[in-house]
């Protein structure tokens, strides 16, 4: 059956139009004819093939991504191994590891990278743990007809200006902010609390709020895919609800949790706005450092090395998490 289904997709229906009216040289030449005909027919056949049609169709989008994403990323990779010049020359074409040595040994840079990593990990943990019950509720306890509405309500805040949402947390947490002015007018405090803004915790809180929908959706999708009869089977076989959740639901939801972790972790490591607004620019994360090296300090090679290092950290953490989870799942089985 699968073969036949595949055969349906492989039809020449979407092959480029004009070639269909050309005579097929291979077929007319017959089996005895070789050499040039063979070559020509291979090209001819490729032009009629599904692969050619697909590649042709995707080429504008792929080219765009190559030119505007891959080429720039390759550029900063190259920059990161070059030497910084003065403001006029900017970059000297001399190969060096100096930028990476600076990035990984200088205490300031190491501190910022560690902070970025720990902040994003905290954000991820908070977001995913808080999001799981919501996804579980929508998937298991909301009537099918109302699920779309819940998802819609959950996603709306994500689509409203990120900048304004971040700024609103500053309004809430600020010296004269909503919390302080609210508590003061209620007579609960005499002086505004100063420990709630401009620190790592407020950054974590703001980011956790900003990325909440990102965590809910993948978990929800994974939970939706779980065959409900499996859970009934679990209970039928004498497991308690809690054990069923632990032994059946959770392992099956893990792919969604992994997706949620990655989708929150990766962009939060590189967040720029929140440290700037909520941290008051005094608690920079890696993105702020990259920006200041690239533009303010005009040290493009060092900025590039920082950017490449950031991407490396993201990749390593993401891979480590995926592998860890794969092991966890295997042990579970």
């Amino acid at each position: 059956m699968r073969r036949e289904a595949k055969s349906r997709r492989l039809g020449p229906f979407h092959a480029p139009d004009p070639v269909q009216t050309e005579p097929d040289t291979a077929r007319q030449a017959g089996a005895g004819d070789r050499g040039g005909m063979e070559e020509k027919s291979r090209w001819h056949r490729f032009r009629r093939s599904e692969a050619f049609a697909g590649l042709t169709l995707i080429s504008p989008t792929a080219l765009y991504a190559l030119l505007l994403l891959v080429a720039p990323l390759a550029t900063i990779l190259v920059y990161s191994f070059l030497t910084d010049g003065d403001t006029v020359t900017r970059i000297v074409w001399e190969f060096t590891f100096e930028n990476y040595i600076t990035t990984w040994t200088q205490p300031i840079y190491r501190a910022v990278m560690m902070r970025s990593l720990s902040v994003s990990m905290m954000v991820t943990a908070v977001t995913v743990i808080l999001a799981f019950p919501v996804a579980y509720y929508v998937s298991f306890h909301v009537a099918p007809g109302r699920k779309a509405l819940w998802l819609f309500l959950i996603t709306i805040p994500f689509w409203t200006s990120y900048l304004i949402r971040v700024f609103l947390w500053k309004v809430i947490l600020g010296y004269n902010g909503v919390i302080n002015s609210g508590l003061t007018s209620l007579g609960l405090i005499d002086e505004p609390l100063t420990f709630i803004l401009y620190n790592v915790n407020s950054i974590v809180l703001t980011l956790a709020h900003a990325y909440a929908p990102f965590a809910i959706l993948p978990i929800f999708v994974a939970l939706e895919k779980i065959d409900r009869s499996l859970l009934e089977a679990g209970q039928d076989l004498g497991e308690s609800r809690l054990m069923t959740f632990w032994r059946v639901t959770l392992p099956l939801a893990m792919p969604g949790v992994v997706a949620a972790v990655l989708i929150v972790l990766i962009p939060t490591i590189g967040d720029y706005v929140t440290p700037q607004l909520i941290g008051g620019g005094k608690i920079p994360m890696i993105a702020n450092l990259i920006q200041s090296q690239m533009l303010d300090q005009d040290n493009r090679p060092l900025g590039s090395a920082l950017a490449v290092s950031a991407m490396l950290i993201v990749t390593v953490v993401a891979l480590a998490f995926v592998l860890l989870n794969a092991r966890f799942l295997r042990v579970k089985k």
Binding site: M1, R2, R3, E4, S7, R8, L10, G11, P12, F13, R48
Partner: peptide, 18 residues
């Protein structure tokens, strides 16, 4: 049976299959 090529053969008549 499924996968025996009957649909493929039909589609060569229709012209959907080279």
């Amino acid at each position: 049976p499924s996968g025996c090529g009957k649909t493929t053969l039909l589609r060569t008549i229709a012209g959907f299959e080279d």
